Computed example of a mutant assay.
Amino acid sequence: MSQIPMFRESFQHASKELLHWFPGHMAKGLRVMQQKLRSMDGIIEVHDARIPFSGRNPLFEDRLASVRPHLFVLNKIDLADMSRKDEIVSRLKYEGVTEVILTNLKNGQDKASKEIVSKMIDMIKSGTRFDRAMTSPSSYNLLVIGIPNVGKSSLINRIRTVHTKREGKAAPVGAEPGVTRAVQQGILVNIKPKVYILDSPGIAQPRVNNVVEGMKLALCNIIHDHKVGIDIVADFLLFYMNKAADFRYVKAFNLDNPTDKIMEVLVKIAVDQNIYHKVKPVTGGPWMEKLNLEQAAYFMVRKFRSGELGKICLDSDQLPTHTTATLSRQRARSR
Results as ranks from 00 to 15, higher is better:
residue 4 I to S: 08
residue 6 M to C: 08
residue 7 F to H: 10
residue 8 R to H: 14
residue 11 F to K: 01
residue 13 H to D: 12
residue 15 S to R: 00
residue 16 K to N: 15
residue 20 H to E: 14
residue 35 Q to W: 03
residue 39 S to R: 13
residue 44 I to P: 01
residue 46 V to E: 01
residue 47 H to W: 06
residue 51 I to G: 00
residue 53 F to G: 08
residue 56 R to S: 03
residue 57 N to H: 06
residue 65 A to F: 02
residue 73 V to A: 01
residue 80 A to I: 00
residue 86 D to L: 10
residue 92 L to T: 11
residue 92 L to N: 11
residue 94 Y to G: 13
residue 100 V to D: 04
residue 101 I to Q: 07
residue 103 T to E: 11
residue 103 T to L: 03
residue 104 N to M: 05
residue 105 L to T: 10
residue 118 S to Y: 12
residue 123 M to R: 02
residue 130 F to N: 03
residue 130 F to R: 05
residue 131 D to W: 04
residue 133 A to I: 08
residue 134 M to R: 12
residue 135 T to N: 12
residue 136 S to F: 14
residue 139 S to Q: 12
residue 151 G to T: 05
residue 156 I to S: 00
residue 158 R to C: 06
residue 161 T to K: 14
residue 174 G to H: 01
residue 178 G to L: 02
residue 184 Q to C: 12
residue 188 L to R: 13
residue 189 V to Y: 04
residue 192 K to P: 00
residue 194 K to C: 04
residue 201 P to C: 04
residue 203 I to T: 13
residue 214 G to W: 09
residue 219 L to M: 13
residue 227 K to A: 12
residue 230 I to L: 03
residue 232 I to V: 11
residue 246 D to Q: 01
residue 253 F to L: 07
residue 259 T to N: 02
residue 264 E to C: 05
residue 265 V to A: 01
residue 273 Q to F: 09
residue 276 Y to P: 03
residue 278 K to W: 04
residue 281 P to M: 03
residue 282 V to G: 05
residue 293 L to P: 01
residue 305 R to K: 10
residue 307 G to P: 00
residue 319 L to E: 00
residue 324 T to R: 15
residue 326 T to I: 12
residue 327 L to Y: 14
residue 328 S to N: 11
residue 330 Q to M: 14
residue 334 S to N: 14
